[in-house]
Design a protein around this nucleic acid. Structure first.
Lengths: 338, 338
DNA sequence: CTGCTTATGCAAATCGTTTTGCTACCACGC
DNA sequence: GCGTGGTAGCAAAACGATTTGCATAAGCAG
């Protein structure tokens, strides 16, 4: 009992070794109360020597914070693992992980695994939801567990949930205006059918664009699964039925890839016969042939804001944050003279 | 003190409500000891009604397990955040997160942030290292903290650290043999200079290939930062200096992208004039024009094995796991007749 | 009735911190 | 001698679960 285990030294081991009480050691580390600099130095040295690290679990229990936040998307990773939206989610994940770590938090990836429903043995201090849908079960789940939530992209119909507005309306407007400027007269839109704010606002921006510039609306809504193939099929139909189309706005980059394939198959050259633009400037946009005009959404900044907001949320205050304005990145796929 | 807080109900709240002791409640949940089915049912119902969830922190403290494992790569995310190896790492991350969750573990992403050196307030039960380098500081760090380690791709010079062998030698051999079969006589190799097993074994496989088929070695080693541009530059030089080259083996997909650009700029058509293959079958390989012949490394399976192995490791036993054999995916970039 | 087993439940110790009172002790001015 | 203030440090009570050892009761054979 009073032997030292092979295991990690505890605070009381350290206290004993230093000849002080555990309280003093604790204060020496946290600085919550003054301890004699001499003593503090001795404790520090001894701690290093013994390889003492305060137990995160004990600290968590006492403080009520695990120091872990979660990143969750309602889009099954299995779907995202096709190259579809993996890039988008993971770019956020990587940035959020960095932001979290600089605040001494760890970031957990939690896939919406069916088996994980009831379980989830780990407690999170908060969760960042990526582009949740209307009535997203993840929202319900975390609200029931009273876990603070921050959303990247507002939660449709839930203005009460703090979110980082990723400005999907502005993004869509940017792209559509660009197409108009490039001389497009008949622009179609490929938009996801899931009720996420980005898709809802993209659709709204498109409708506004159509009524402003005249012409009938050519909006195709489609599911996110098998996004590229679906978009391929739909675009084939769309272009055949509407030979006057000269521009396409794809609200998801995988849609753009599919549309590009369809256009090429029909012999519509991009950008001469058809201009094609998409929102997310990921690998797809960059590597496409020709490269796709897209929008820099400032994802790392958005992730950083989300972490920041979540921390506020955990500590009580709540508010909404606007992301930086998105910026257009013009590439060949939409330019007047190739 | 005896009032119920606005906060989460504890086990003793529940026990009081059910009219039993905390012990009984605990047993009812864990099943470590028999409790009357009647009582158990009542407790369950009450728990659901009150929204009781056992505190993960208390459980962690008692059991010594946080239920959190980490995924770390020594490749700065900042580098990976260019589209370079993001795909590779993140595909593993997504899969590992799923595997972890099915075992009731959470997976944390930990970027090698400079500021995170001394800190890291969260305790991990174990860590999965992705393709660590020789003398990787991450290895030293976690060894010092006595955190169980499992590596994806063996740690060079550290056969004692349990790892999932991702069979880089076989992967390289597969690709090189394919090139030979396609009629290549003079194959060059683009290989990363970081001392990771994948690169070391790729180089070895290449040298073996060269000595077997004759001809001189054309191996270019280059850094991982700015991978695509570096490869572009190096390939330009390489092709100009060696017009007889008819095949390139790129050990990193970003290298392949750069090489492709260089070839196209020099007017070497792929695959007619030059056949190009790479290891990782990610977005780059699939979206490249022409698409790249690559290898299915079975990353999800590898991630799953890593999690499994780590769990063994945490519980004591230790061993090495072989990944499934990699499989060639032939695409246009390397085929004899386009 | 005694002795033995099985079913059920409880009280208390434990995990490693943080935090709250409280006690010395010293020095100073009156 | 005595209050007053400041400094250093300690003991003990949380935090919320799990687990061990013990207690009670019932069932049953002898």
């Amino acid at each position: 009992m009073n032997e030292q285990r092979v295991n990690k030294p505890t605070i009381s081991d350290l206290a004993k070794a230093a000849g002080v009480s555990v309280t003093t050691v604790s204060h020496a580390f946290s600085g919550r109360r003054h301890v004699d600099p001499e003593t503090a130095k001795r404790i520090q040295a001894l701690a290093d020597q013994m390889g003492y690290h305060p137990s995160s679990m004990a600290r968590a229990l006492r403080s009520g914070r695990t120091g872990v936040i979660a990143l969750a998307s309602s889009m099954p990773f299995a779907v995202a693992a096709g190259p579809s939206r993996l890039g988008f989610l993971m770019e956020i994940a990587a940035s959020a992980a960095m932001s979290a770590l600089t605040r001494d938090l760890a970031l957990c990836l939690i896939p919406p695994h069916p088996a994980a429903q009831g379980k989830g043995s780990v407690g999170f201090d908060g969760v960042i939801l990526v582009e949740p849908m209307r009535d997203d079960p993840l929202v319900a789940y975390f609200e029931q567990r009273k876990t603070p939530i921050v959303s990247i992209g507002t939660v449709p119909d839930r203005p009460d949930i703090p979110a980082v507005n990723i400005r999907s309306r502005e993004t869509a407007a940017l792209l559509l205006d660009h197409l108009a400027q490039q001389g497009c007269h008949r622009v179609a839109a490929l938009i996801g059918s899931a009720p996420r704010t980005s898709q809802i606002e993209s659709a709204a921006a498109y409708e506004a664009f159509v009524t402003r510039f005249g012409g009938s609306s050519l909006l195709v809504r489609m599911g996110e699964e098998e996004a590229e193939d679906t978009a391929y099929q739909e675009t084939l139909q769309l272009l055949r039925a509407n030979p006057s189309i000269d521009g396409i706005f794809a609200a998801i980059d995988a849609f753009a890839s599919g549309a590009m394939r369809a256009a090429q198959e029909l012999g519509w050259t991009v950008p001469d016969r058809l201009r094609l633009v998409t929102r997310y400037d990921g690998v797809r946009a960059k590597l496409s042939q020709p490269p796709l005009t897209a929008v820099d959404l400032h994802l790392p900044a958005i992730a950083e804001k989300a972490v920041h907001l979540l921390l506020d949320q955990i500590e009580g205050s709540s508010r909404m944050i606007e992301a930086d304005l998105p910026e257009l990145i013009v590439r060949r796929s939409s330019q007047r003279r190739s």
